[in-house]
């Protein structure tokens, strides 16, 4: 008798893959906005998977940062550039065929490798960690303080760079 979490996993995993596929290769629309919408759905479903893995803090961050900030940025740029042309262009069948072939080969390699690997005995209940905010925060500010600070600098640099790049006259 399958457990409830297992059913939940298969449901969410199916959603993630479906929405992901629709993001990149939607047979009905090639509008970037559609892709962006399906990307949001993919990300939200992924957050669900994170919850299943008891990574509650990351699930929250995933929704906040990706579905919130990043996707807003995407949509904003799509609007800014007013991209409609994509709809009139057809995918080139040659590229489609060769690209798909390569990806299928990749999937083949991946799956054979993963299925061959024996699952280890580490999946023992009770030793599983909980990804809650307090534990993660403690870890972050104790063991990973320096990378954390460097990352904040990176964000600052990215901000400055973006402003410079998008300024109209760089003279």
């Amino acid at each position: 008798m399958p457990q409830f979490t297992d059913i939940l996993f298969f449901g969410l995993a199916g959603l993630v893959l479906l929405f992901g596929l629709l993001t990149v290769a939607n047979p009905f629309s090639r509008n970037p906005v559609t892709s962006a919408m399906f990307l949001v759905l993919t990300i939200v479903s992924l957050a669900g998977l994170y919850v299943l893995l008891h990574a509650f803090f990351l699930a929250a961050i995933q929704v906040l940062v990706y579905a919130g900030a990043v996707m807003v940025l995407f949509l904003f740029v799509i609007m800014l550039l007013d991209l409609k042309e994509e709809e009139h262009r057809r995918l080139k069948s040659g590229i489609l065929a060769v690209g798909s072939l390569a990806v299928v080969a990749f999937v083949g390699i991946l799956l054979t490798t993963l299925l061959k690997a024996k699952p280890t005995a580490s999946a023992v209940a009770g030793r599983l960690v909980e990804g809650d905010t307090v534990k993660l925060g403690t870890l972050l500010f104790e063991n990973w303080l320096l990378p954390f600070e460097i990352l904040s600098v990176l964000l600052l640099v990215a901000m400055v760079g973006v402003i410079l790049l998008t300024k109209k006259d760089l003279k």
């Binding site: 060769v98 390569a102 990749f106």
Partner: peptide, 15 residues
């Protein structure tokens, strides 16, 4: 595409 094929080959060899 070439990059992907390259990665594929590397993975294939490293496996």
């Amino acid at each position: 595409f070439f990059f992907t094929v390259g990665v594929l080959l590397v993975v294939l060899l490293a496996r």
